[in-house]
């Protein structure tokens, strides 16, 4: 609904990757299937495929990030692209340059793709509307709106453990109100027909009328986790305690923190996920984060393959899977 027109070309193929909302099952499965072919790349002696050779990818980060930026950088480099990292939060933006001027300057350097992270919802959408027709935009997280590559790598991880997504109950726990990851996951899981998507948290962290996105809301964690197959814990930002949303980390952990004991109400084979970076003892107990049900580190390594797939797809560099494997 939000960006459907702009992220697809006339033939309905991905041109930009801005949100999971409005994408079809076919779009999502195409990315997931293509990503499978890149998983092996990291294990080779030469960790590169030549799909984006001669292309320039700019990581345009208006918000500080280490993890996401690094995986995008690695993904682009493994596709043989030239990569430019721009941490705009510490450069031109502070000199008063407008977002539009920053974009025009970079375009004049003939870049082919922007990976954008920005604190404002809709920023990637805005940028996609501004750039020249040949330039591609990937949303690396915009405000509270969307983080679609994270959602796809989470789906990829889920599918590796539980191939039949339509049979799954998934609980997303924590600060849903401020989470772009949660929103992108909800759209993607519903598109793939997940049996049930739940959001779990105190009323202060569940946004208004989220039921309209196709989720069930739980304020009690034991009820919310009962019989689920997948648990996605969200990071709790410390500043939520400074506003009037939560009294303390201690009380939050007591009410919503994921412990071994709480995990017992979920399905015995439930997996535990977290987009990172994790706050041990705030939203998740170390015993769970490092436990056998946790797939948190797999998420990170899958992130590179999934981002490679998305970059290659939107640059139109789709080649038969065999070519990527040779």
């Amino acid at each position: 609904m939000t960006a459907r027109d702009i992220q697809l070309d006339q033939n309905g193929r991905l041109r930009h990757f801005l949100t999971t909302e409005g994408l079809s099952q076919q779009h999502l499965y195409e990315i997931l299937d293509y990503a499978e072919s890149f998983v092996g790349v990291a294990d080779r002696a030469v960790k590169k495929v030549p799909l984006l050779r001669g292309k320039t990818v700019v990581n345009l980060f208006f918000e500080p990030s280490t993890r996401t930026r690094t995986t995008f950088e690695l993904a682009a480099k493994r596709l043989s692209a030239d990569v430019l990292n721009l941490d705009v939060s510490t450069s031109s933006a502070t000199k008063g340059e407008s977002l539009q001027d920053t974009l025009r300057t970079l375009e004049a350097m003939h870049c082919d793709m922007f990976v954008v992270r920005h604190a404002n919802s809709g920023a990637a959408h805005f940028i996609a509307r501004q750039v020249a027709p040949h330039v591609r935009v990937i949303n690396g997280g915009d405000g509270r709106h969307a983080h679609p590559t994270q959602a796809l790598l989470d789906l990829f991880t889920i599918r590796r453990h539980k191939p039949d997504i339509a049979s799954l109950r998934v609980a997303i726990v924590g600060d849903v109100a401020h989470s772009r990851v949660a929103r992108s996951e909800i759209h993607a899981l519903n598109t793939l027909g997940a049996r049930e998507v739940r959001v779990v948290g105190p009323r202060t962290l569940i946004p208004s009328e989220i039921e309209a996105m196709g989720v069930r809301v739980f304020h009690d964690v034991s009820q919310g986790l009962a019989d689920v197959d997948v648990i996605i814990m969200l990071r709790l930002q410390r500043e939520r305690m400074r506003s009037a949303l939560l009294p303390s980390e201690h009380e939050y952990f007591h009410c919503y923190g994921l412990t071994q004991k709480r995990l017992r109400v979920a399905r015995p084979d439930a997996i535990v996920m977290h987009p990172g970076p994790i706050n041990r003892g705030v939203e998740i107990d170390s015993e769970v984060a490092d436990g056998e049900r946790s797939v948190i580190l797999q998420q990170v390594s899958h992130g590179i393959a999934v981002r490679m797939a998305i970059m290659a797809l939107i640059m139109g560099s789709v080649v038969p899977a065999s070519a990527a494997e040779d």
């Binding site: 939000t2 809709g122 709106h145 009328e209």
Partner: peptide, 15 residues
């Protein structure tokens, strides 16, 4: 306005 649209777009809501 705070509601389904603000939630979907991830924009800071005004109740």
């Amino acid at each position: 306005h705070e509601g389904a649209i603000s939630t979907r777009l991830g924009l800071p809501p005004i109740p």
